[in-house]
Design a protein around this nucleic acid. Structure first.
Lengths: 342, 342
DNA sequence: TCTTTGCGGTTAAACGTTTAACCGATTGAG
DNA sequence: CTCAATCGGTTAAACGTTTAACCGCAAAGA
C-alpha cells in the first residue's frame, strides 16, 4: 500500500519495476511485445502502488481522446436525465466518458457551459439547445468538433439532428380525441418560442382545421408549471370548459392533472387528458394517463451512433432524422360525458 | 474566423498578438501587470482565433484542479438525479466541474467506474455507494482524494458522511399511521441488504414494539418494482390485508400505488399509503400522496460544503451528519375504514 | 551620479503520458 | 561466416499549460 496522498505516476512504477517508463506504457496499453517476466514485474508494481494512468496527460499527448460533451437545458427534467442515462450507457460500452453540463434557460449561461465543455477538447458533442437559435453552433463549427443536436432543432442547421416527429405525434393524439367525440380541445404548452412545441401545436391545429373543427385554444404556462397554473384552473371552471386537454410536456401533464383535481373535474368523466412523455408515475395514477410516448432510448441511441460515425470520419451531408412517437391509450381518456356533438 | 478544425493553442495566440506565450497566459489568468495596449492586443487575438485554454494541459501542469467526481448507482432514479442537479449547481458557482458516473448495481462495475473517475485526478469525490461494504473506500484513501459519502453509509467508515435520519423518518410515519388507528401495517422495501433500508424498517419495528403492536410484515421486492410486484397484489387481497402501507423508496411507492389500483383497493378508503421521497407527481395524483420528504437539496449542499472544507485542507476528525426528514401529510392517509381496533 | 525599485515583458522548466527512433543481442537464411 | 531481421527493451521529443527566474529599462531616492 502506497503512502497516503502520494500521486503515483508512470515514473514511480518504472522505478519500482526496474524498467523504463516506455516499457510500463507498453504493458498497460499492450502495444509491443514485452517478455512475460517483465510484464509480470510491471503489473506487480502497478498493483503494489495502485497506479492509475493520468487522463489529463494522456489526453494532452494524444491530442483528443475519448470524451463526449453533453449539454442539456436542465437536470431536473426526467426526459433529459433519461436521455443522459441512455448516452452514458452507450458511452461506457464504447469506451468513452461523457461530461454533462446543464445550461438552464439562460442562453448566456449556455454559451459559457458550452465553452467549458469544449475546453476539454472532446471528441464530440451532443447538444440539446435551449432555444431555437442555437447561436453557439458556429462556435462548434469553428472548433471543428463533430456534434449532433437532439430534440430541439435550430432554425437553420447544417449539423446532424435527431428529433421526434412532433407533428405526427400531436396529430395522432388530436385524431384520437376527436374520434372519441371531443370537440372542445385545450392545448397546454410551456412556450411557443420553442420549435418542437410549435410543431406539436401545428399538428393539432392542422388536424382540427381539416376536420372542420374550430382551432383549439393554446395556453402558454411557462416552464415551471408542475404546481398547476391558476389560469388553467380558471379555464376549467368556465362555461366554455374544454372536454379534453392535450398537455405538450411532461411537466405540463403534471400541472394539468393537478389543476383537474383541484377544480374537482373527474378524469376522464368531465375532462379527458392526454399527457406527453411516458413515465412510470403515469401508469400508477388512477386512472392511468393516456400518453404520447417519446422514444427516448431510440433518440439517444441514434444520436450516439450518428456521432460515432462522424468521429470515425464520415463526411456525408448532415442527416435530419425524425423518430415517431406512439400514443399509449390508458384510462384518462374517454368519450365526452354529454352527447354534445357540434 | 479560424479555419475549420484547427485546434488553436496558446502558442497561436502568442504569435498572432506578437507576444510570448507567458504573456498570453498572464492575461487570461490575469496574474501579473500587463500593459493595457498588450492586453488589448492579446484579447483581440483570442477572440479572432476563438482560443479556448486546454483543460487537460492546465490540469497536468497544476497537478490537480477543479474537478469533482460523482459516483451514483443509477441515473434513472429521480433521487439521484435531483442530487446531481443540486451538486452541479454548487459546482458551477464554485468554479468546479463535476464528472458523473453511474455504477449500476454491480460492484464490479462500480470499482471500474470509480477508477475511471480517479484517473481524472479529481480534487474530490462524492460517492453514493451501491452497497454497504464500499470496499473501494480503501482505494480512495490510498489515492489521497478527499471524499464524502452520501445516503448509503458503509459499515465501517472513517470518512465524512451525510445521510438522512432514516429511523426518525420511518418512526414518524409509523407513529402517524398508528395514531390514525391503523394496526396492521405493511412495509414494502427494495432490499434489506442496504443499511438505510434496514434503518427505516428498524424505526417502524421499534415503534410498533414500544406501542405494544405486532411487528409489521416487511416485503422485499427488489429494485425494479415500478410495475407493481405480484406478491404485493396477493397480499392486498388476502384476508389479513394491511390497512396501511409504508413504501420505503420512491420506486416502491410507485409500485405500491399501482398494485393498490390494480387490486381495486381505494386509497385511503381501504388502505392508507405513505410514500418515500417527495416528487411533483405525488402532488398530482388523486388523492395526493402522504410522503416522507427527504431533504435532497440540503443533502447535496452539506455534502458539497463538507467536501470543500476537506479540499481546503481541514483535517479534523470525519463528521457523520444526519439530516431529518419531514412527513408531509396529504390525502392518501386516513383512519382505517372499520373500527377494528385490536 | 550611483544604486535601488518596480514595471512589463520573456525564457525555460516542469507536469505525466505516448511513440517514433534507436540499439544491442540473438536468431535464421544464404 | 556474414548479413539481415526480429526481439525486447531504452531514449528523448512532444503535447499545451503555468510560473519561477530572469532581464532591460525607466523612475526615484540617496
Amino acid at each position: 500500500m502506497s503512502r497516503k496522498g502520494a500521486k503515483v505516476s508512470i515514473r514511480d512504477v518504472a522505478e519500482e519495476a526496474q524498467v523504463s517508463v516506455a516499457t510500463v506504457s507498453n504493458v498497460v496499453r499492450n502495444r509491443k511485445n514485452v517478455s512475460d517476466a517483465v510484464r509480470a514485474r510491471v503489473e506487480e508494481a502497478i498493483n503494489r502502488l495502485n497506479y492509475l494512468p493520468d487522463r489529463a496527460a494522456m489526453q494532452l499527448r494524444e491530442g483528443r481522446n475519448r470524451i463526449i460533451g453533453v449539454l442539456v437545458p436542465s437536470l431536473d427534467n426526467p426526459f433529459f436525465t433519461a436521455l443522459i442515462a441512455c448516452l452514458e450507457d452507450r458511452a461506457r460500452k464504447d469506451g468513452y466518458d461523457i461530461i454533462v453540463a446543464s445550461a438552464g434557460e439562460d442562453s448566456e449561461l449556455a454559451s459559457s457551459r458550452l465553452k467549458a465543455l469544449l475546453s476539454w477538447r472532446p471528441a464530440g458533442m451532443i447538444v440539446l439547445p435551449n432555444d431555437d437559435l442555437f447561436a453557439d453552433a458556429s462556435f462548434l463549427d469553428a472548433a471543428g468538433v463533430p456534434y449532433v443536436v437532439i430534440d430541439r432543432l435550430p432554425h437553420s442547421c447544417n449539423a446532424d439532428t435527431i428529433a421526434v416527429d412532433n407533428e405526427q405525434a400531436a396529430t395522432e393524439a388530436a385524431a384520437y380525441l376527436v374520434g372519441l367525440g371531443h370537440r372542445r380541445l385545450l392545448v397546454v404548452a410551456t412556450t411557443l418560442s420553442l420549435a418542437n412545441i410549435r410543431e406539436r401545436c401545428a399538428g393539432i391545429t392542422a388536424f382540427c382545421v381539416q376536420a372542420g373543427l374550430p382551432v383549439p385554444t393554446v395556453l402558454e404556462v411557462g416552464h415551471h408549471a408542475e404546481e398547476g397554473p391558476e389560469v388553467l384552473t380558471e379555464m376549467l371552471t368556465g362555461s366554455e370548459a374544454p372536454t379534453a386537454i392535450i398537455a405538450l410536456t411532461n411537466s405540463i401533464t403534471l400541472g394539468a392533472l393537478r389543476c383537474l383535481h383541484q377544480s374537482g373535474c373527474a378524469v376522464p368523466g368531465d375532462v379527458s387528458l392526454v399527457g406527453y412523455d411516458d413515465y412510470a408515475w403515469m401508469r400508477a395514477t388512477h386512472p392511468p394517463i393516456t400518453a404520447i410516448s417519446q422514444p427516448v432510448d431510440a433518440l439517444g441511441a441514434q444520436a450516439w451512433s450518428r456521432l460515432m460515425h462522424r468521429i470515425a470520419g464520415e463526411s456525408t451531408a448532415p442527416m435530419q432524422v425524425r423518430l415517431s412517437c406512439t400514443l399509449v391509450v390508458r384510462g384518462s381518456t374517454a368519450p365526452p360525458r354529454t352527447g354534445e356533438f357540434s
